[in-house]
Simulated assay, not measured.
Amino acid sequence: MLDAAFMCRWMYATAAAVDREAARLTELDSAIGDADHGANLKRGFTAVAAALDKEPPPTPGAVLALAGRQLISSVGGASGPLYGTLLRRTGKELGDAAEVDRAGLAEALGAGVAAVAQLGGAAAGDKTMLDALLPAVEALGRSFTEAAEAAEAGALATVPLRARKGRASYLGERSEGHQDPGATSAALLIAALGEVAA
């Protein structure tokens, strides 16, 4: 069973991964976006870690809701609202339960991903974070490891795609041949979950 401490470890692991990969995320974003994805997410997850240090919430849902609020208030660009919505909605779905199992987390995360799709108006194959998140949620029903692998594969699969949503969509065919930065950071989030579960 996964408790509040587990969710805190997940957020800390994500913050560490984003910190480590910030330059690569920004490099990917410089090809097809605003060249600020790494810096923005690093600022956001640093704020999440600081908030959790200050007052760790008592339930898994409250941890993710707090993380989502921090991201919305501290991250510029599109990624703040998108990641914030993902975690807030997932937290809301988990409710006030003291513990959750993997299947329950998969279901809640699925609701979070659906909220992101609604907010951004994107679908699978649009070359966005959803290309990593949708297969990850499906695989999470089976195992944490499979979820991390599915997210990574989904991010890599964005390379040949033409972007249909977000800033990259303005580039048309020039967006082809580049890995999507949002899908890449989403894969980091899911990889951190797998790491903590292991």
Rank of each mutant, 00 (worst) to 15 (best):
D3P: 02
W10A: 15
T14G: 13
T14Q: 12
T14F: 13
A15Y: 11
A16H: 09
A22C: 05
A23E: 15
L25A: 04
E27V: 04
L28K: 03
A31E: 06
I32F: 11
A35R: 04
G38A: 05
L41I: 08
K42F: 06
K42V: 01
R43F: 11
A47N: 07
A49N: 11
A49D: 11
P58A: 15
A62E: 15
L64K: 04
A65L: 05
A65K: 15
G77S: 07
P81M: 09
L86N: 10
R88A: 15
R89V: 08
G104N: 09
E107D: 13
E107F: 05
E107N: 11
G110P: 01
A122Y: 06
A122S: 15
A124K: 07
T128D: 11
M129I: 08
A132C: 03
L133K: 02
L133Y: 02
L133M: 12
A139R: 00
L140K: 00
G141A: 09
R142E: 14
S143R: 00
T145L: 07
A151W: 01
A155L: 05
V159P: 02
P160M: 12
R164K: 13
R164V: 07
L171V: 02
E173P: 04
E173D: 14
E173C: 06
R174Q: 11
E176L: 06
A187I: 07
A187G: 01
L188I: 07
A197H: 00
